[in-house]
Every structure is written in structure tokens, then in C-alpha cells.
Design a protein around this nucleic acid. Structure first.
Length: 573
RNA sequence: GGGGCUGUAGCUCAGUUGGAUAGAGCAGCGACCUUCUAAGUCGUUGGCCGUGCGUUCGAGUCGCACCAGCCCCGCCA
């Protein structure tokens, strides 16, 4: 099914074409700025040049020549200087949009664009034996939103948590446990102790080459399947995943797989041989395997001691994903600082002859810094861990709820606080272009006004509140949408009509903020409507029914948008 | 030295096939709660769009050069 806005655009193009004055190739439309009282514009510049007439003249001629088909979503056509402006027919649009949303409810906006295609999303990827902190939550949150967005676009999405459970850094973890012992604790507390040991060990490692050698030895032992190393490794993995699972549940994050780097261990020797066979890489004099491609800096695929690196495992990972899932895209939601790594990875995959039918995409995101621009680090002691971040956000939300809505039952207060607090943290990572660096600004993050998750949730809750009262009063719904002609109603409806378009743009740009933006504007449009158009006390029962439909549609659409971001929409707050 | 990202209002940001008067929020000032949740709404103040040159009928948007900040550049991930 085609959504109303697409139909409107198609009708506009057809109407212009029907005049016979403009070649179809020159019929391009743009969305006018908000201050222009129109919904779609045809700039006549190019076509006018072709026809050798002044643009305003062509626009005027077209305005006179155009005929609007019966029942069209086009309401009005007029020339405005060199532009030909089209406005939607408010009543027919209202009927079409409300029907679409009523039919799909929270599934509004979904499209079958990606049907039959698979996308692998590589995200989160926490390090084993490390607590998750503000640094890694970006990948988790952005990645999950992209998963949601692509699913809504009809793709088969495979979410894979590429755990950092291998490599030399893991050798350090094992070596430090061997030296200081296994911490006597559980959950995040145990991990905090592991981190402290790790930090202590790597600190001393700088001055003691024997410790560095020991870490390397553990990493090799692990790769060689030494039972003691494997057992210790498994303990760390279980501990970390258990703790992570709690955070994932709170964030609404779910993976299809969590293979992790270790999963690819057995494939590495063949993979290295393959890079050599295809001459994508060569063996250096010192025994290491290196590649130098596309004028990119040289990079290592196998260490001179025979050990593997991140790159080796990433190559195997691509190969595995291709043969296992046959995706049209593999997207990596990873820190922008690894941009070069991915360019190198993608280059070597191409050089090996893989990745011909797949688009490999790195979605870089910026770093999180403190208010004064300092990086967050364990060493500096200014690190903020995910669990405490969510707890703090929830606690602050609860304080506001106690103030604003003290009559709510305690259990509901707690649930709402969780939704609002976690929503604020999620939104902080999604409301702007992901490649920007963000600052950890508690005031900004937990803001309850303006462009904030809370404001969006609040708008939804207001809708739901009206709908609840309507049910209590036994008010009729399923009204006549053509009664919705107030500017505030039309403004809101026009914006609701844009969700499918926003979803498509969010997918093509890998940009959840496009959805966030849409939600925010929806909330604002609803806010205006809320002030100007009484629903339960509308002038007539007929108008009340129609407005109730609009409120229901707004609630569904907002919930759909928030859902794409991974943010819950409470019934009341 | 090479490369990537960023530069738009005091602050945080939108502005993407180049189009009309560059938009929001926050902060500031002012107004609106006996009516559906004031976590709201409305008004108002605030811009050499980093700088320069170029392409174009038209540039915040495209090209080149420069400036500033952050980041990356073989045996970590």
C-alpha cells in the first residue's frame, strides 16, 4: 500500500505531466520551507530555461493549465513567482491518514521496501571482563535503533553482538587473574574488581617486559585451547554476559546472535592462507602477514609470533556472515576512531574477491566527553558506568513524578520512572546526528522539556489520558475525519502523514535522529492542537468523535516513532 | 607528513537530489492554569552560516585553498 504522502506526490507529478508543457524528466518537486503555505513545490527554473520562457511565466501558465483529478489529495495549485505550489486537500488527507493509522496502529509507517533482503547489524560489542560504560552504550543504543528501523522497512535483520572476547587484551585479563586471583564477588562488583586488576597489571606491564610477555603467552595459550585458559575465559564470558543482559533488558536491546570474536578462532588459519592466495596480503620478512591496499596505510593480519589480531577475526567474520546470512548489507555501528580500520577491512575483502554483492558500511559515532571536553576514562576516575547511569536517571525521573503526579500508585511510579529515565539516556544518544561527539551533560540529558524523550513521552501520555476519559464517558469514536479543518488539526495530520517518509530517510541515512526529529515535531504539533482544540468538550458530538480519532492516531504514531528509537511510551506519567 | 570528523544564535543542534524571509530547544524577557496532564502553549530578544576564492539565474548546501578543534596512521581493539 502506498501512504497518502506518496500518493499526493505522485498525483502532483502526474498533474504537471498531464499539461504536456514539461518533459517528465524535468518534473522534480521539493518540500517547501515551513513558512511557505504549500506542501509541495515545483521550481520552474530548469523547465523554463529549456522552454526559453521566464520561470514565473511558466509557473503561471502551469497553474492555469493544470487540472486536479476528482478525489485527488491535491487541494490547491497556485503560482508563487517561479514556483508552482501545491497544497493538500485537508479533509481528504485527514480521512486518508487517519484510516491508514487506524489500520496499522503502532505499526504505522512500516513499509516493505527491504522485503527479501537481509541486513546484518554489528553492534554493542562489549569487552569481556569490563563493565559497560557511557562509551559503549552508544553502539548499543544506535545499533538497536537501526535494527528497529530496518525491520520496519521490511528487511530481515540479523543483530549480532560481536563480543570482545579474544585477542591480546584478553591475554592481559587472564594473566592478571593468574597473578592476583579470581575476585570473590558477583555481577558488576566482580567486574569492577577484574578491571582494577587489569589496570594494575597493564600499569606494571609498561615497565616490566616479562609481564607483557606473560600476557602474550596467555593469549597464545587461549588460542591453542589450553584447558586452564579456556576455563578461566569461560568464567569471564559468563560473568560479563550475565551483567550485560540486565542492562540490555532495561534498554530494550535484543540480539539474534552473540558470536563474539572467539567464535571465528577455528577459521583464522584458512582465512590467513586465503589472503595470501588471493595476493591481497603478503608475508613480510619477519614472518608477519601484512596488506597494503588502495593507498591506505599498511596493516597487520597476522603477528610475527603467529598470533592473530582484530583484523584477522574481522575478515573471518565478514566471510562467515556472507556465507551464513547472504546479506545485502553488513553495517558496523562502531566508534568513529576506527574509521581507518574499517576502510582497511573493506578494502581487503574486495581485494580477496569477496563482498561483491554486499554493501559494507561503517556507521561511525562520536565520543562521549565530560562537560569541559575531557574524555571519560577509568584512569581519570571520571568514568560513568551504564548501570549507575540508568539508576541515576531513573531516580531523577522518580523525583519528578512524585512532584508532578503524586497520586500514581507506587508500582506504576517505579515503572514510569524506569521508562522515563532510561528513555532520557537513550534519547541523549539518538536525538542528534550520531557522528557528533556528545557531552555527558546531566541537565541536558535528563531535561524534561524541549527536545527531550520526556516531552515526547508526556505528549503520548496526554493523548492516552484523553482517550481513557473518553472511554469512561462513553464517547463515540470513528467520526467523520472531514470535520477536522482547524489549522492545528490540519498541521498535526500533515505531520503524521510524514512518518513513512521519515522512516525511509532514517534508513537510507542510517540516522535515527530523523525519527527523533519527527517525534519531536509531532509532539509540538500535538501541543498546539491540545491548546487550541478541545476534544472531550468539542462543540459537537461529531467533532468530538473525529478529534478522538485524531488523538488516537497521534498516540499510535508517537508510540511507533518512539518504538523505533527503543523508547517506551507509558500510559500516564 | 598523510587521512577522517566537526565549525550555523550566548549554549546544544536541525537545515541531504543547490531554490522562496536560515529554523528549533535551552538560557533571557513577557503572557496564559474554575476547561481534556502547565513535563504544556503563545509572544519576544538574539545570525559577516569559520575565512577567502570559484561554479551557478541562484550557495549554509557543490569545488578548491586556508584557519580552528577533536581523532586516526603495522604486531591493541
Amino acid at each position: 500500500m502506498e501512504y497518502a504522502l506518496e500518493r499526493f506526490t505522485a498525483e502532483v507529478k502526474a498533474a504537471i505531466a498531464a499539461t504536456g508543457r514539461v518533459a517528465p524528466a524535468l518534473i522534480e518537486t521539493t518540500t517547501p520551507k515551513p513558512n511557505i503555505p504549500a506542501d509541495l513545490a515545483f521550481p520552474a527554473f530548469r523547465a523554463a530555461k529549456e522552454l526559453r520562457v521566464p520561470p514565473p511565466q511558466l509557473a503561471a501558465e502551469l497553474a492555469a493549465a493544470i487540472s486536479i483529478p476528482e478525489g485527488s489529495l491535491i487541494g490547491k495549485v497556485e503560482a508563487a513567482g517561479p514556483f508552482l505550489n501545491f497544497s493538500m486537500h485537508p479533509q481528504r488527507l485527514a480521512a486518508a491518514v487517519l484510516a491508514e493509522i487506524a489500520a496499522r496502529a503502532e505499526g504505522y509507517g512500516r513499509q516493505p521496501d527491504g522485503a527479501g533482503q537481509t541486513i546484518v547489524v554489528d553492534y554493542s560489542a562489549p569487552n569481556i571482563a569490563k563493565r559497560m560504560h557511557v562509551g559503549h552504550i552508544r553502539s548499543t543504543i544506535i545499533g538497536q535503533s537501526l535494527v528497529n528501523i530496518f525491520r520496519a522497512l521490511g528487511y530481515t535483520v540479523v543483530g549480532d553482538n560481536h563480543l570482545g572476547d579474544w585477542g591480546k587484551q584478553f591475554g592481559v585479563v587472564l594473566a592478571s587473574i593468574a597473578m592476583y586471583g579470581r575476585p570473590d564477588a558477583v555481577g558488576e562488583e566482580a567486574m569492577a574488581l577484574l578491571e582494577a586488576q587489569y589496570a594494575r597489571y597493564s600499569g606494571e606491564m609498561k615497565e616490566r617486559p616479562d609481564l607483557d610477555e606473560e600476557a602474550r603467552r596467555w593469549s597464545l595459550l587461549l588460542e591453542q585451547g589450553d584447558p586452564q585458559a579456556r576455563a578461566l575465559w569461560q568464567w569471564c564470558v559468563d560473568l560479563t554476559l550475565q551483567a550485560a543482559e540486565k542492562n540490555y533488558n532495561r534498554l530494550g536491546v535484543r540480539f539474534d546472535h552473540a558470536y563474539g570474536e572467539s567464535f571465528y578462532e577455528g577459521m583464522l588459519p584458512d582465512m590467513i592462507a586465503e589472503t595470501l592466495r588471493t595476493e591481497a596480503a603478503y608475508r613480510d620478512e619477519d614472518g608477519s602477514v601484512v596488506a597494503e591496499l588502495d593507498k591506505l596505510p599498511k596493516f597487520i593480519i597476522q603477528r610475527k609470533d603467529g598470533g592473530t589480531v582484530y583484523m584477522t577475526r574481522d575478515i573471518a567474520t565478514v566471510e562467515f556472515r556472507l556465507s551464513e546470512f547472504h546479506p545485502s548489507q553488513i553495517i558496523y555501528v562502531v566508534d568513529g576512531r576506527q574509521e581507518l580500520h574499517f576502510r582497511q577491512l573493506f578494502a581487503i575483502m574486495r581485494a580477496m574477491g569477496y563482498a561483491r554483492d554486499v554493501e559494507l558500511v561503517h556507521i561511525p559515532f562520536g565520543v562521549v566527553t565530560t562537560l569541559d571536553g575531557q574524555p571519560l576514562s577509568t584512569k581519570k576516575g571520571n568514568m560513568v558506568y551504564l548501570e549507575s547511569l540508568l539508576d541515576e536517571a531513573t531516580a531523577r525521573a522518580l523525583a519528578v513524578i512524585d512532584l508532578k503526579n503524586p497520586d500514581l500508585a507506587e508500582a506504576e511510579k517505579a515503572a514510569v520512572a524506569e521508562s522515563v529515565g532510561v528513555g532520557a539516556v537513550v534519547y541523549n544518544d539518538l536525538y542528534q546526528d550520531t557522528k557528533r561527539n556528545i557531552t555527558l551533560d546531566w541537565e541536558r540529558m535528563l531535561a524534561t522539556e524541549g527536545n527531550s524523550a520526556t516531552y515526547l513521552q508526556y505528549s503520548h501520555a496526554r493523548c492516552r489520558s484523553i482517550l481513557r476519559r473518553a472511554v469512561e464517558e462513553g464517547a463515540a469514536t470513528a467520526g467523520d475525519a472531514t470535520l477536522l479543518t482547524h489549522p492545528a488539526e490540519t498541521g498535526l495530520i500533515k505531520h503524521l502523514a510524514r512518518l513513512p517518509e521519515a522512516l525511509r530517510e532514517a534508513g537510507s541515512r542510517y540516522a535515527p535522529f530523523v525519527i527523533a526529529d519527527w517525534c519531536y515535531t509531532t509532539a509540538r504539533e500535538f501541543g498546539v492542537f491540545f491548546e487550541q482544540c478541545p476534544v472531550l468538550k468539542a462543540e459537537s458530538a461529531e467533532l468530538r468523535a473525529a478529534r478522538l480519532d485524531l488523538v488516537a492516531a497521534t498516540a499510535h504514531a508517537l508510540k511507533a516513532g518512539l518504538g523505533l528509537l527503543g523508547i517506551r511510551a507509558p500510559e500516564r506519567m
